Amino acid sequence: MDDSEYQVLRLKLRAVELNVVNLYSPNDKPLSLDTIPVQNSNVLVIGNFNSHSQSWGYDHIDRRGEEVESWQDDHNLLLINNPDDKDTFYSRLWHTTSTPDLGFCTEDIHEYCKRIGQQLGGSDRRPIRTEGRDINKVTKDFNAALLQAAKKCIPRGSRRDYKPYWNKDLEGLQEELSEARREAETQPSQTNNIKLQKVKAKFLRAKIQARRESWKEKTASLNLERDSTKLWKLTRQLDDEGGSERGTTSVEENGSLLTGKQTANKFAENYEKVSNITVNRGRQREVRREERERRSKKSKEEVMETSLTLNELLTALKKLKAKKSPGPDHITNMMLTHMGSFATKTLLDVFNLSWKEGETSTGLEGGDHGTYPKTWKGQKESSQLSPY
């Protein structure tokens, strides 16, 4: 060939098709960039352009560099190289370094393209790496960032036997009461006993007053339409009542009582019997055929090809119920509804990536599993337990 050489490779991963162009243009041949097929999306052009420009680290621009930048502007391509990147080529003959290797891509895949990497093996050139986004890694990184932000911003310090009315004044009076009792016990006398009773009375009066003020303050902020559970919990705390202990689930099997691990094993055996479904080979082939047809046909519904919008996400977040237990990722609904604008847009990007790739994160494995008894009177039979 009298001009540059290039190869076009079309890679298809699920529903995404990537067009990769590998170019080599020696110094003594024209670039002929207009002959390269460049589409509006999913295009990656990499290779040896043998051109100089300040845009990729040189101190000047030559004619070939001007031609490359004009071609880049005409096709709305983004340069992967940075001016401060390491040189991509080392000449063993001249003992010099330069950057003849460049990478260009369309805007939709620019975030997947990494910068200049380390030298591979004995090659004289450094690679420009590209990689796709893994929905599992993206979800894991988002969850980790959200949990870290929540840990820094949400006050911690929950403690057992917490009393909402307790304050520093009561803390001081309690220490004074303990000291007065110690003196009464170590130095028995009428004076120390009177002092103990006065300090005790002072402490009890302050405690009753603190309870009343705390009750007024807490109940004033409660919404009885949705915070009834919180109200009763607060009442028990103000009355210094302890929490109730969990009961033990047991089942009866052939006249004997099973508890603990035996109960779990018996439930697993019964659940295995009812959950095993035999599917004949004919039905299996039919399902595989339907799956192949579904994958081969592109959706004709526009809504199935449209990304989720920020307003749609905000509407969905507003419908989340606050008092719900988190899943295995430990992300609560309150964390999601109190995110900032940047975190909300990041979550939208996670959802759209899952929507585009047709995959969901597999990081939800490892949740807690157990059983609860069905509502009926009498001893709990192993067949009367439901999974959760």
Rank of each mutant, 00 (worst) to 15 (best):
Y112M: 15
N280A: 03
Y372W: 10
N192Y: 03
A184S: 13
L234V: 01
R294C: 10
E179P: 02
T259Y: 09
S25T: 06
K273W: 03
L257I: 15
K152Q: 15
E252P: 01
L234N: 05
K319S: 13
D368T: 13
P127F: 06
S383H: 11
S307K: 07
I128N: 08
K168S: 15
V274Q: 12
R64S: 08
G282Y: 06
R182E: 05
L238G: 00
D85A: 07
N136T: 05
Q284S: 03
N50A: 13
S158Y: 06
E179T: 07
R115D: 14
K207C: 08
S256V: 15
K151D: 09
T97L: 05
L385W: 02
H52S: 12
T248H: 09
F49P: 03
R226D: 00
A180P: 09
D62G: 07
K168G: 04
K298Q: 11
S25L: 04
V303C: 06
K377Y: 01
R205C: 13
K198T: 10
G243Q: 11
K86I: 05
E293K: 12
P164V: 03
R211D: 05
I331Y: 05
L234H: 03
L44K: 00
M304L: 15
K152R: 10
G117V: 03
K86H: 11
K29M: 07
Q197T: 10
L173N: 03
N280G: 10
C113G: 06
Y271C: 07
Q209D: 11
E107N: 06
Y58M: 08
S341F: 10
T106R: 00
F142N: 02
S41M: 09
G103C: 08
E67D: 09
A210T: 04
E17Y: 02
L313N: 02
D101M: 00
A343F: 13
G358S: 01
Q7A: 14
A184D: 05
G363Q: 10
G327N: 08
L146I: 15
L173Y: 10
F203Y: 15
Q118N: 11
A343H: 09
T235S: 13
C153S: 13
T371W: 05
E269Q: 14
T315P: 02
D108P: 03
G157S: 06
D101G: 02
R246V: 07
D84E: 13
D161G: 09
L231E: 05
T360Y: 04
V274Y: 06
Y90F: 14
T191R: 07
T248M: 12
S158P: 02
F49Q: 02
T278K: 12
H75M: 04
R226S: 02
P387T: 11
E245L: 14
K321D: 04
